[in-house]
Nucleic acid binder design. Structure first.
Length: 498
RNA sequence: GGCCCCAUCGUAUAGCGGCCUAGUACGCUGCCCUCUCACGGCGGUAACACCGGUUCGAAUCCGGUUGGGGUCACCA
């Protein structure tokens, strides 16, 4: 019989800290999940400890290899590395629970022989019916009644052809722990009941394999979402059993990270595109920006600065500073931070990173000609975008043939722009030294000073002619990049449309 | 419903008993810069959920109320 143990919680600090990230490979990586990975990683790195990356694929019906690959891809993209786990191995492998069946089977026998696990034959319907019959709120769940089944009673169930699940006998005592982000928490005895750890077919459930692997792998700090806060007493109960049978000697410290919320008061759902990490990458978030924003969901570096690098985060991160209340995912703020990080990129780096976002306009890798244009054009947009995905719209016209440029409807000027276009073409055709400063000079002389037009009305039509857009990179630099011939051709082409 | 968690501007947060007539950032907004859009600069807007208590003094500590969320699966 399990004796109520006084848990000895881990006291590991510094290099002895060992955390883990253990997602289930279902669906595409969720930003909340990745935030959890980030905090675990930052905690390990800050302390000079270790991060274990384990896969909890015990639900064959929902798990997928594709999802597993995406998890790897997500962490690599963000620069989150691990010291032990899938892909790289380690002393406690294998790191996919689907491959650890033998380990679990042996442990289940051990725990069962020691009396911590008992057979449970009741179905969910029977448990509910039993509660109703006893005037007990069905929502209270299982009432532990099979704890005391006699061998004869069990035999009778088996004779009916029933196969039992296995439940853990939880202690009839209050269970307390000191949450790293929330402080002391106590669950009164009776508020958590004996729970199923092994299916009738012998397959262990998450409720079993999660604490077991944490114990086997020497995890000292469990940092996870607050959705499993309520199951912590049950896991501690399992830990006590594991300690009793000599599998481990400490219970890890727990820290429950706040939810990442969507609009309203609900968790950011997997159905919401904003929950999908890769959705943000497709739109043009760079890892530096996204990781910076994600770290701000429940944590902050200082009181007056929210743009910082991963290194700075690692240097300052401590899970006890994490805010316990739920954080809303604010796309606008995320984009703003991403824009700041884009502006901090070295020009050559920026140039490389936008190439994939220019597909449809240039080849990847770019041809030598495209490369030359790209090199000149990239600096024109680096400080005006928040998302790399914006480059297509801004730079596309530079990679479009004069005759194929489309003029956006909202950019089309009235027929009176003909005068402007003609005057500009006239002035420009006289210009031989084709540089932005000269282009600007002759255009200002003829249109602004000469014709007395406001800069806005003078240059608007030219912007449309050159870019086809109402909004574009700086006009004169654009003309320089395009070259004299192309610029005049485009001006003529727009004139013909008016 | 039982149990658990949470509660500062619209949002994310700073604040750990006096530095708070509550700071910063995003957002919104006024002005400046300006060939568009951005960037940048200078302003503005807006919060301690409520009620008690402790204290010379409370956003900070305690209790309660209200509100929100989670959990009570042979999912994870």
């Amino acid at each position: 019989m399990p004796a109520p143990t006084n848990a000895s919680f881990s006291t590991a600090t510094g290099p002895d800290v060992k955390v883990r990230f253990c997602p289930s490979p279902t669906g595409t990586p969720h930003v909340g999940l990745i935030r959890t990975a980030l905090f675990n990683w930052a905690y390990a790195r800050h302390n000079g400890g270790q991060l274990v990356f384990r896969i909890e694929d015990t639900d064959a019906a929902r798990d997928s290899e594709e999802s597993y690959e995406q998890l790897l891809e997500a962490l690599r993209w963000l620069g989150i590395d691990w010291d032990e786990g899938v892909e790289i191995g380690g002393p406690n492998g294998p790191y996919r629970q689907s491959q650890r069946g033998d380990i679990y089977r042996e442990l289940i026998e051990k725990l069962r022989d020691a009396g911590y696990l008992y057979e449970s034959f009741a179905t969910a319907e029977e448990i509910e019916a039993r509660n109703v019959a006893n005037g007990r709120d069905p929502k209270q769940g299982y009432d532990n009644f099979e704890r005391t089944l006699t061998e004869e009673q069990r035999e009778a169930y088996r004779a009916e052809g029933r196969h039992p699940a296995l439940r853990l006998r939880v202690p009839d005592a209050d269970l307390s722990f000191d949450d790293l982000v929330r402080g002391p928490i106590t669950f009164p005895a009776g508020s958590f009941t004996d729970f199923v750890v092994v299916r009738p077919n012998g397959a262990p459930l998450y409720t079993f394999v999660n604490p077991v692997d944490d114990a086997l792998m020497g995890i000292t700090h469990v940092l996870r979402g607050e959705d499993i806060l309520s199951s912590t007493p049950r896991q501690i109960a399992l830990y006590h059993a594991l300690i009793e049978v000599g599998i481990t000697d400490v219970v890890p410290r727990f820290g429950h990270l706040p939810y990442v919320m969507g609009d309203g008061n609900k968790k950011l759902s997997k159905r919401d595109p904003e929950s999908n990490l890769f959705h943000h990458r497709v739109r043009g978030f760079i890892p530096e920006g996204l990781v910076n924003y994600l770290s701000l969901l429940g944590w902050s570096l200082t009181h007056d600065r929210d743009i910082f690098s991963l290194d700075e985060m690692v240097g300052a991160f401590d899970v006890v500073d994490v805010n316990p209340n739920p954080a809303r995912f604010d796309l606008k703020k995320a984009e703003s931070i991403n824009g700041d990080h884009i502006r901090m990129l070295a020009p050559a780096d920026f140039e490389e990173r936008i190439i994939p976002y220019l597909s449809g306009y240039i080849s990847n890798p770019p041809t030598p000609i495209e490369r030359v244009i790209l090199h000149e054009a990239a600096p024109l947009v680096q400080e005006r975008i928040a998302l790399l995905g914006e480059v297509g719209h801004l730079l596309g016209p530079f990679f479009t043939a004069d005759g194929e440029l489309d003029f956006d409807d909202d950019a089309m000027p009235g027929a009176d722009a003909l005068l402007v276009l003609d005057a500009a073409a006239g002035a420009l055709s006289q210009l031989n030294d084709w540089a932005a400063e000269h282009i600007e000079r002759v255009l200002r002389e003829s249109l602004v000073e000469g014709a007395g037009l406001k800069p806005r009305v003078a240059f608007g039509p030219l912007r449309t002619a050159v870019s086809g857009r109402r909004i574009s990179p700086p006009l004169f630099e654009s003309m320089e990049l395009l070259g004299k011939e192309s610029t005049l051709a485009r001006i003529g082409r727009l004139s013909a449309r008016l």
